[in-house]
């Protein structure tokens, strides 16, 4: 595993954070999108930085400890762990369908703007269609 990729991600995180911070300082009276953009950049920057730093530290540590790297590879590729992971993801997906539907219903009953509801409905339908598509694709493949 190369740490260069994660160092670049780390650097991108710093740049995004710095960009957001500079925008926040430079624009004294923000309008429209600029009201939220600096904070979004800072948020994404922090997340990216954290991810990059975590992965870099992990790679450096595993290079020094090959025994730990082997154990980690076994744990990751272990078929029972993979089965558990897949089952947990499937359960989470099932719950998502109901939670998302309840949220849509709640938004509709609250009289939320169509600008909000329509993208949510499209997203919901996309997820359902994506599941059906993959089911058909995997049925042909397996």
């Amino acid at each position: 595993m190369k740490s260069t990729k994660y160092l670049l991600i780390l650097a991108a995180g710093v740049l995004l954070f710095a960009g957001g911070f500079i925008l926040l300082r430079l624009i004294t009276e923000p309008e429209g999108m600029m009201k939220a953009l600096p904070f979004i950049l800072i948020g994404i920057g922090c997340g990216t930085f954290g991810y990059g730093l975590g992965e870099t530290v992990r790679i450096i540590t595993l290079k020094k400890r090959p025994d730990l790297a082997k154990q980690l590879a076994i744990e990751t590729n272990d078929e029972r762990n993979q089965a558990i992971n897949n089952l947990a993801k499937a359960k989470a997906f099932d719950i998502t369908i109901y939670v998302f539907a309840a949220l849509l219903l709640a938004f509709a009953l609250m009289g939320t703007e169509m600008m909000v509801i329509i993208p949510l409905v499209v997203g919901y339908l996309f997820i359902v269609c994506f599941r059906i598509y993959y089911q058909c694709r995997l049925a042909k493949k397996m």
């Binding site: 272990d78 029972r80 089965a83």
Partner: peptide, 26 residues
């Protein structure tokens, strides 16, 4: 056994307890 088969020790434990059925490969 886990080390030889390249699976986790928990997998061996679960197999022995009958909580988990292995894949045909395993």
């Amino acid at each position: 056994l886990a080390s030889v088969l390249e699976v986790s020790r928990q997998t061996i434990g679960s197999l022995e307890n009958g909580r988990y059925n292995p894949s045909i490969l395993l």
